[in-house]
Simulated scan of single mutants.
Amino acid sequence: MMQPYVTLQIEAGVGTIEFFHPDHNAMPSDNLKKLENTIIEAAKNERVKVVVLKSAGDRTFCAGASFKELIAINNTETGKEFFSGFAHVINAMRKCPKLIIGRVQGKAVGGGVGLAAATDYCLASQFAAIKLSELSIGIGPFVIEPAVSRKIGQTAMSQITINAEQFYTAQFAKEKGLYADVFDTVEALDEAVKTLAENLATYNPEALVQMKKVFWKDTAHWDSLLMERAEISGHLVLSTFTKETLKRFM
């Protein structure tokens, strides 16, 4: 079985960040930390003009939090620390001065939807259905809510949060604004991502930096907001309801 990884490859001004975990690209704390650090690394690298965020594998972009790690949480501090992993990654994406293109080839669940929403421009395949399953296990998508609501609006965010056991199609996600476009095949998706990234890498980098600031205006408070949300989730994950539900999933 392949080991989890996060890599950064730079070619023609495009910094491609790829993450992988054998458990449907679920994100345990160590992989989240590596992803955060890699985004920061790409942000500082002068060779990188634009960033592409992708995962390995065919039909799952990211399955969200690691259930194995969730079920092992036994105090509020550990819980807050775990959920702060996604908070730190989203904030790293927000603060990165380079535009981030999302490449979503397959299903996105929970935190995976948050990652897609935190990109500046997201392209997907028809297989990239989305689901926010958190309420069904006794917690909620508190940490990722600001990023998702910013992209698709509070009404759509509420819909997919409340209907926690349903996958919504990639076309739905496009109609709501999460995806800019949806492609029939992963090959067509990759070609579109490559073309867009290579074009952006030739644009005036100063203009790109300034536009990124405009896109993310009024979000400076997310540093504290997302940590407050992580604390809520860290408390809820200790509930008897959540513990018992996670055991059934395991």
Rank of each mutant, 00 (worst) to 15 (best):
K54W: 02
G110S: 15
A173G: 03
E11Y: 08
I101L: 14
N75D: 15
V109H: 10
T155A: 15
I39F: 01
K44Y: 03
G15K: 08
A192L: 01
L135I: 13
T219E: 13
D223I: 11
T245H: 13
G112W: 06
T202G: 05
G64P: 01
Q171C: 09
F19V: 01
S149G: 05
G102K: 03
P4R: 04
Q105L: 02
A43E: 06
Q166G: 06
R103D: 05
R94V: 07
K176A: 14
S158A: 12
F127A: 15
K98F: 00
Y168C: 04
L99E: 09
L225T: 11
I130A: 03
N31E: 14
A108I: 02
F83C: 05
D23L: 15
F67R: 01
L70E: 07
Q166F: 13
L123A: 08
I10G: 08
A12V: 03
F241L: 14
F215T: 13
N31D: 11
H221L: 09
V51C: 09
S125C: 08
A188P: 03
F142Y: 14
T155H: 13
A207E: 12
G153I: 10
G13A: 13
H24T: 08
N91M: 04
M2Y: 11
T245Q: 12
Y121T: 10
A129C: 14
P205T: 02
V209W: 02
E46G: 02
A92C: 05
A147P: 06
K174V: 05
D30G: 00
K213V: 03
N204Y: 06
Q3Y: 10
E191N: 10
F172T: 07
D190V: 07
A220F: 09
G138L: 06
F19P: 07
S125G: 10
E11R: 13
D184A: 15
P22T: 09
E41R: 15
A116F: 02
L200R: 04
V51L: 07
T240V: 12
L208T: 03
A87F: 06
A180Q: 15
E231Y: 05
Q159G: 09
I39S: 00
E69D: 02
T78I: 00
L225S: 09
S158Y: 13
K80F: 00
P28W: 00
W216S: 08
M27Y: 06
I17N: 06
G138C: 04
Q126L: 13
G138D: 07
T242I: 07
H235A: 12
P28N: 09
Y203L: 15
D58H: 14
A72F: 02
S239I: 06
A87K: 02
V104E: 10
I232Q: 06
C122F: 05
Q171H: 14
R59H: 13
I144C: 09
L8C: 12
V50C: 02
F249T: 08
S125P: 01
K174F: 12
I71N: 00
V14W: 08
R47I: 03
E175Q: 15
E231W: 05
T7D: 14
Y121G: 09
I101A: 01
